[in-house]
Every structure is written in C-alpha cells, then in structure tokens.
Simulated scan of single mutants.
Amino acid sequence: MELPPRPKLFDFHGVSMTHYFTDNWENIQNFQARPDDILIATYPKAGTTWVSYILDLLYFGQTAPERQTSLPIYERVPFLESDFHILPPGTELADKLSTSPRLKTHLPVQLVPKSFWEQNCRIVYVARNAKDNEVSYFHFDRMNQAHPEPGDWNNFLQRFMDGKMVFGSWYDHVTGWWERKQTHSKLHYVFYEDMVEVSRTTSCAIKVLTSLQIM
C-alpha cells in the first residue's frame, strides 16, 4: 500500500505545525479538563512515553493491572492534539475514559487548553538536553510519516536550531513551560537526565517519579 505524502510545515499561531495536530483544533481548545487530571507535557522525544507508562502504573498498576495488557498506551494516556484520521482524535479518546484521563501533549504552554489552568490540574513537564533531544527527533522523523521529511543531518540540524520543527522551537518550548512553573504551583518541571540517573539506582520504575518528589 502506498503511503500518503509527508505533511508540510506551516505557521500556526506562531508555532510550526502539521495538520495532524491542528485539524481538531476547536475541540482541543474547548477540551474540558477535570480537577484530578494529570497532564504530561514535553517537547517531542523527551520521555513522553516513559512518563506515561510510569504514571499509568502508579495509578492503576495495583487496582487495574489488566490495563497493561488490554489497552494500548495511546488509549490509556491519550495524545491530546493528535488527529491522525486512522484513530479517533485524542480529545475523543480522553473523553471516553471512565477514569479521570491521564493526558499527554507536545503543545507549547501558550497553546494548552485554558481548562487545565482553570481546573488547577497537576502537570508534569519533562525537559531533555537539546543535543540528545535533537538526535532522537532526527531518527524519529526518519520513520514518522506524520512529520515532514527530515532530510540529511545538516539540514535537520539547521531546522532544529531555527525552530522549524513540528511543535516549534525547543528553546521556546522548554523556557515557556519553565516560566509558567513560576506561577502554577502544580506544575512539576523534571529533567530527563535526572530521571535517567534515578532509574540507574532503583529497580522500580515508579520510584523514578516519586523519588523526584513529583507525586
């Protein structure tokens, strides 16, 4: 089967995006967060799936262990802004969860639905070293059909430094969330490298977050 063409980048409210993350925009912005929601926020390739698994185990590992084998991670921790057309949009998946949803997003802080701030939700933001983040992003984009063609390394490096990536500039993303941390007491700002260091000294994945005083 022939794959659809790679999407093109375009400017969306000052942030480079592709249509897979903007086609459902009205529903994204009108999404109603719940007071006990936990939002996982990262720049792409900064530990999103890792933290998603940890939080899901932390909250449901004992009470509903069947979740680990009966539901894929994208249903347990929906990707808020995703609309890939072969699956229900992330907002729809989140609304269907009987438990309070554990959501993930790559949106820069200024584009996050206002209901998360109004409900004073807990947020876990993970920041990763720019160099490692970029290398991971490059290899991810080589296989990810929802992003533009990465081109060669030199071209990709220049785009990364210029902020011409899906979800925009790495620098703007990590600094924007850091600044919001100063006014939102329930925003826990975590460094990927600290999580790696903690994971080396414990055999329990859940302790990675609890030892960093996130939960």
Rank of each mutant, 00 (worst) to 15 (best):
D56M: 08
S169K: 08
Y171P: 01
S115V: 15
E179C: 11
T99I: 06
A64E: 10
M165Y: 00
F160Q: 08
F138E: 00
E118Y: 03
H139C: 03
T91F: 00
R180V: 15
H139I: 00
E92S: 08
L103I: 13
R76W: 02
V135H: 06
P148W: 03
I54Q: 06
R76P: 02
L107R: 05
I54A: 01
S115F: 10
Q68M: 14
F84M: 09
A64D: 07
Q182C: 14
P88L: 13
Q158T: 12
S52T: 05
T105L: 10
N133A: 13
M143C: 04
F60K: 15
W177T: 15
Q158K: 12
A127N: 05
E134Q: 12
L111C: 07
L80K: 03
D83R: 06
V124W: 03
Q119H: 03
Q119D: 04
Q62K: 15
L80F: 00
T175F: 03
T175N: 13
K45F: 02
T63Q: 12
S98M: 11
H85N: 10
Y137S: 05
Y171R: 14
Q158A: 14
V124T: 02
R67L: 12
A64L: 09
F160A: 14
F116M: 12
D83N: 12
M165W: 00
F156V: 12
S100R: 07
L107S: 06
P108M: 15
S169G: 07
P101H: 05
L97T: 13
A64P: 01
H147S: 09
E179P: 07
E75I: 10
S70K: 13
Q158M: 13
F84V: 09
E92D: 10
F60E: 09
F84P: 00
V124D: 01
H173A: 13
F79I: 07
S82G: 02
P148H: 03
H184L: 14
D152Q: 06
T49M: 02
R67Q: 04
H139P: 05
V112T: 13
S82W: 00
Q182F: 02
Q182I: 14
S115G: 11
V51R: 05
T48C: 04
E66N: 08
F160C: 09
T175S: 13
T69D: 12
K96A: 15
